[in-house]
Design a protein around this nucleic acid. Structure first.
Length: 507
RNA sequence: GCCCGAAUAGCUCAGCUGGUUAGAGCACUUGACUGUUAAUCAGGGGGUCGCUGGUUCGAGUCCAGCUUCGGGCGCCA
């Protein structure tokens, strides 16, 4: 912005007028007049474009990014590996001592410095790469203040250390790859739903209903903690709070999205979710992203089919579009990263009735810490046995006891199970939980009371069953758990840019 | 919330049953050398051994408490 032409500064009028004033120049050059000087005189390309092989040899280009390594030759030659995050590989820049700033700048470059290199894209004389940039100019944009203490060195770091520098870890190979794959997964999810006629519905982040009673919630309040308004009885008067009542961060958009399902038929949410539970594991976050499709006129079977279809589409997309990053995961993070996804795509999901699963576990002869009995919720050890030892591929467990599942799940004809399902995957456990919803008002009310919930608090939700109710089903997919699974990670804190867990909300 | 483990240089680690001045690699720095590939070779600087207390002639090492991090479990996505 600092190189904006003088006439722009002289015209303090609206953005629209400014844009129109510059429109002919933008048309002619294809560029905006206020970008950096180097971008105007040369064709700026991403490292991905530069390495793609689509630009003719000798093409004059500029690349912009951050230094990974520098190797010098006293013969008057330096090799700089530059990354801009557009792909896994950095580009090699060859700088010679003919550059005006060679000895006082180029030879002082260290990991993390940012620069703009301009020159010709040529076939490399070295072995490690096909193409490289023969630099005519190297413009250092930002130095690294103290190279000795710059945390991101060209070496292996522990994941624990990188979590302490979560704001700088995207500069590593690993977190660059995770970030690109995370994006591709998100994109593939949106593409899947879009191609299949679903509408993305943005349910509220702030909620005043204690959705499904599922877990502890974060309170949202503007009250002064040092001076809380009190009722006559001495309790805190939340009528004086911002929303005039208790408010919280959402733990699920499901109840809200159901309303849109019963009008637009196929909908889904994809947004942040918050759980104030004191969960200290490698699989839980206090703030995470969740995908919740809801399908009108669908039963549990259809619901399970969609989970399988969606996951396979996502994995296939990642393998197709992020082969470079996946190869890195397979090489450095988890050997089976690619073959595991390929196996997942190739094999049909196994369906097991909860009652049968209990029988299998009882017959297994395995000694479990938690004894297996019909009516218990399956523990991690039980799920692991089913998925990893008994079946060896993803399993959908269906029809759980009604007492251990949420009130909105549809009561089966046997009167003792509900049409709930969990999708369990090898190496990660429960990745999806879903259900067919209870569409019958009388049974819904009965189940609410059974769970100690006051139907009067859910009148808006009960309206769905009073006005044109239909059978419908949906599920919740934890986005970060999906990222963990795809990348072969061990800890969910590495699957989200800035993890929030009990005791931690740095950055 | 419960159980277990760990904490030594900017980073990754070694340091035996307690015993002089705490080591290596990477990074940084100086030099040599080379179309190099996390280059290589030689030299140099860099440490309150997480904190507090205890045992001992003597503690990085043993003990206790605390802090932080990690692993497992519960709750779940």
């Amino acid at each position: 912005m600092q190189d904006r032409p003088a006439t722009m500064r002289e015209r303090p009028d609206s953005a629209a007028i400014r844009y129109h004033a510059w429109f002919p120049a933008i048309r002619a050059t294809g560029r905006y007049p206020w970008v950096l000087q180097s971008e105007q005189c040369m064709s700026v390309v991403s490292v991905k474009q530069a390495l793609s092989g689509t630009l003719p040899s000798g093409s004059p280009v500029s690349v912009r990014g951050w230094v990974r390594t520098r190797r010098d030759s006293k013969a008057g030659l330096s090799f700089i590996n530059l990354s801009d995050g557009s792909c896994f590989d950095p580009i090699q820049i060859v700088a010679t001592d003919s550059l005006a700033n060679y000895s006082d700048e180029v030879q002082r470059l260290s990991a993390g410095c940012s620069l703009i290199a301009t020159g010709q894209l040529v076939a490399s004389q070295g072995k490690g790469q096909g193409l490289e940039l023969q630099a005519d100019t190297i413009e250092v944009v930002g130095w690294v203040e103290d190279p000795e203490t710059y945390p991101i060195q060209p070496k292996a770091h522990s994941l624990e250390f990188l979590r302490e520098v979560a704001h700088l870890r995207p500069r590593t190979n690993l977190f660059g790859a995770i970030t690109r794959v995370r994006h591709t997964i998100a994109s593939a999810i949106h593409r899947y739903f879009d191609q299949n006629g679903y509408c993305w519905v943005n349910t509220p982040i702030i909620t005043t209903s204690d959705a499904e009673g599922a877990g502890q919630m974060f309170r949202v309040s503007t009250l002064d903690l040092m001076n809380l308004p009190r009722t006559d009885k001495g309790s805190i008067d939340t009528r004086k709070d911002f929303f005039g009542k208790d408010a919280f961060l959402t733990v699920s958009g499901q109840l809200n999205v159901e309303g849109y399902c019963l009008a637009l038929s196929k909908v889904y949410t994809f947004g942040p979710t918050f759980r104030a539970e004191n969960s200290n594991t490698a699989r839980h976050l206090a703030e995470f992203w969740m995908i919740e499709p809801e399908i009108a006129f669908a039963d549990l079977d259809e619901n399970a089919r969609v989970t399988e279809d969606l996951l396979k589409f996502v994995f296939k997309t990642v393998l197709d579009e992020r082969a470079d990053d996946m190869a890195f995961f397979a090489e450095r993070v988890e050997k089976t990263a690619i073959t595991r996804l390929e196996g997942f795509i190739a094999a049909p999901f196994e369906r097991i009735d909860y009652t049968d699963a209990v029988a299998i576990l009882k017959k297994s002869g395995k000694k479990f810490e938690f004894p297996v009995e019909w009516g218990i919720d399956l523990q991690t050890e039980h799920e692991r046995y089913l998925v990893e030892e008994h079946v060896g591929r993803p399993v959908v467990v269906v029809n759980y006891p009604e007492k251990i599942k949420a009130f909105y799940m549809r009561l089966n004809d046997d009167g003792r199970t509900v049409a709930a399902m969990d999708v369990l995957a090898p190496g990660i456990g429960e990745i999806i939980g879903g259900a067919q919803r209870e569409e019958r008002l009388d049974i819904l009310d009965r189940r609410m009371l059974q769970f100690g919930l006051d139907p009067a608090h859910y009148n808006w939700y009960r309206d769905f069953r009073r006005y044109g109710t239909v059978p419908h089903a949906g599920f919740g997919l934890g986005f970060e758990r999906l990222v963990v699974y795809v990348c072969g990670l061990a800890n969910i804190r590495d699957a989200i840019p800035y993890p929030r867990v009990p005791g931690h909300a740095e950055f």
